[in-house]
Write a protein that binds this DNA or RNA. Structure first.
Lengths: 142, 142
DNA sequence: TATTGTTATACTCTATAACTATA
DNA sequence: TATAGTTATAGAGTATAACAATA
């Protein structure tokens, strides 16, 4: 018995990720002109406060070239400012401007609501289990 | 309490999908030079036999432009042949050549083994639950 | 006019190597 | 020599409009 495509986990993950991403994309794209990596970097800075690019790379599992470009784009949008660290001038402290904070606050609320709508879709218990499994899978594969 | 990124389902889905896809990609790419959509189209034709492009679009939820390009690429690799339907000359019956069938047979085995390795990773019960939830989510979002 | 499939085009995302500035 | 971050480039994936051929 050959497997159907709906039994192949890589396909399911990709399809689900794509559909969900496409639904959330308008929130950061249409209003703020951000790309996905920019939204993620903004998310991390909004959540953790001042960080270096390297810290964002590590915490978010994003390659340094992507972070570098996202930081440049967010800076151009006046959502982020950088300050070279005097201890070690290779590092820059990245932080959100008031405009960046405002965007983050608004998007964080919308993200939470979006996540809640997904929770409604699959049910509360399943939703927690789903997140747990995905985190487990990601940890194993990273 | 602001949400961590590991609590945001779109992020988790995308990260898991990317890591898993990257692991499976070598099977169809390195040996057969296929792209992801080509592998999916091959999968469908191998599983269901003769189909039209429209049927593949519907069953696999792939846009017609992607299927069209994948079909062209698979034809160039001599994995697929087309035959215009005389009933309605807008349609073409697509089917795998012997070389295409051989590639499918080999890849189907490897895909099943890969899927099984993911099952080992998350545990059998969770694995079934995970697939069920993803299928549910996909159905709701499509 | 509607449908199947193709082509053109632009944008988004990923991956890697080479580079700079600093340590 | 090593590390933080940048730039260049190619490849892969996605989205949409316009089109040709057939019905």
């Amino acid at each position: 018995m050959k497997p159907e495509i709906s039994d192949f986990l890589p396909y399911l993950l990709n399809q689900a990720a794509e559909l969900v991403s496409r639904d959330f994309q308008p929130f950061y794209k249409d209003r703020y002109g951000m790309l996905r990596t920019e939204w993620r970097v903004l998310f991390h800075l909004g959540h953790h406060g001042e960080m270096t690019a390297k810290q964002i790379c590590e915490q978010a599992s994003i390659h340094k070239t992507k972070v570098s470009r996202a930081v440049t784009a967010l800076e151009k949008k006046r959502f982020l400012r950088r300050e070279t660290l005097e201890d070690d001038r290779r590092f820059e402290a990245l932080s959100l401007t008031p405009a960046g904070k405002a965007a983050f606050d608004s998007l964080a609320v919308e993200a939470a609501a979006f996540d809640a709508s997904l929770e409604d879709m699959v049910g509360q218990d399943d939703f927690e289990a789903l997140k747990r499994m995905l985190n487990h899978l990601i940890a194993k594969k990273s």
